[in-house]
Amino acid sequence: MLRDIFSKKKKYATIPSEQAKQEVPEGLMTKCPQCKTIMYIKELKKNNLVCEGCDYHHRLSSYERLELTLDPGSFQEFDADMIAKDPLEFPSYLEKSAQDREKTKLNEAVVTGEGTINGIPTVIGVMDARFRMGSMGSVVGEKITRAIERAIEGDKPFIMFAASGGARMQEGVFSLMQMAKTSAALNQLHEKGLLFISVLTHPTTGGVSASFASLGDINIAEPGALIGFAGRRIIEQTIRQKLPDDFQTAEFLLEHGQLDQVVSRHNLKETLGTILALHYPNGEE
């Protein structure tokens, strides 16, 4: 009997071949960049792309944002076919823009249109950080300006969701001119007494934060959003001071009076609906 036991071949664990490995299908799971929790993308989407562990607000695409904000089936898009040219003949700009169009299925870094929020007609714009980091070139500025003009013509409020790395360097001064153009259009909206709500999401920086994104009658941000003009290192080197750890976060700006409210994505549509109802109690001015 003992001979039988010792004579048996010992079975060793083997490393499975590449074909035998059970891999997680691509696009099934993701990791939270803040708390590092691994979660199913399907469950994350059910929670409006907000991490249940740490409340980190993941980025939304422009159409995901519109779906969460507007009444179902109410959105009508403006100027969807506008595509940027290459005024400076910047190397590889057209090729990279084409790649972004293929990747995002968008023609530019902003989607504009009109819809309703709790039945109140509203003109809306949503920037998309997946397209050239949401940078503002001539087409982005033009689409936002046209949306503002439509709001003026229709006596409707205007809501803008900003998400941007700033002015688009590949278009040079043409992109910088969009800061003045969008700001001038908003001044006309203000003179007509129409409401502008600016919603700053992560990230909102550079020329976008220095122009239309900061000009709302009411300025709202999502929790933890990075909001600022220049980067932390540049500011610290300029003023020769150490900045607080939470510098340029939505919460820091709220504490220092640069925002009116920081609102969780779960409550954002309700908050926007309440503000609109206060200004447009009958659904119109």
Rank of each mutant, 00 (worst) to 15 (best):
V263H: 11
L186F: 12
R265V: 07
I15Q: 09
K42G: 12
E171F: 08
G206F: 04
G257T: 12
E77N: 02
Q170C: 13
G224S: 01
E222N: 06
A13H: 12
N47F: 05
L189A: 02
S97Q: 06
I15D: 04
P72D: 10
L189S: 00
L88A: 14
Y93N: 08
M82E: 10
Q170A: 15
F229V: 15
G224W: 01
L215G: 12
G172W: 11
R132S: 10
I83N: 10
E270L: 11
P281E: 08
N47R: 15
N219W: 12
G273M: 06
L106G: 05
E108V: 01
L28F: 07
Q99W: 14
K45C: 06
S209N: 15
Y280T: 13
Y280L: 13
E102V: 15
L272E: 01
I197K: 00
P203D: 13
G113V: 02
P157G: 03
M1Q: 05
F212C: 08
G73E: 07
K105W: 06
D79Y: 12
P157R: 07
D155G: 13
G27R: 11
F161N: 01
R3V: 03
E43H: 06
K103C: 09
E95D: 14
L243V: 11
P33D: 01
V140Y: 00
A167C: 13
K46I: 00
K9C: 03
T249V: 04
E95Q: 11
L88I: 15
E26F: 02
G115V: 07
N219S: 15
L243N: 12
G166D: 02
G207V: 07
R265F: 09
D4R: 07
I120A: 03
A225C: 10
I41D: 05
A277E: 03
G125N: 09
S74R: 06
S175P: 04
H266T: 04
E149V: 00
D79M: 03
N48T: 03
Q241C: 08
Y56P: 00
E102L: 13
L272K: 00
A277S: 09
Q241H: 11
R146W: 00
T238P: 03
G206Q: 08
S209W: 15
S183D: 14
E270C: 06
T69D: 07
K46H: 10
T249R: 10
F252A: 03
L268W: 14
C32N: 02
P16I: 00
A151K: 03
A250V: 05
L49Q: 06
L186W: 15
T201R: 11
A167L: 11
Y12S: 11
R59L: 14
M179Q: 13
I124E: 02
G166T: 09
L272S: 01
A225H: 13
V140H: 00
P33K: 06
S209H: 15
G165I: 10
V110L: 03
Y280W: 15
R59H: 15
N118V: 01
R265K: 14
D155L: 13
N267T: 13
K269D: 05
S175R: 03
I117N: 06
G228Y: 01
Y12N: 06
H256V: 10
F78P: 01
G228H: 04
D71T: 07
N118P: 01
M177S: 13
G141V: 12
I38E: 05
D155N: 15
Q258S: 14
R101Q: 08
G231Y: 09
I120D: 06
T122H: 02
Y63E: 02
K242N: 10
L28I: 05
L60S: 05
P91T: 14
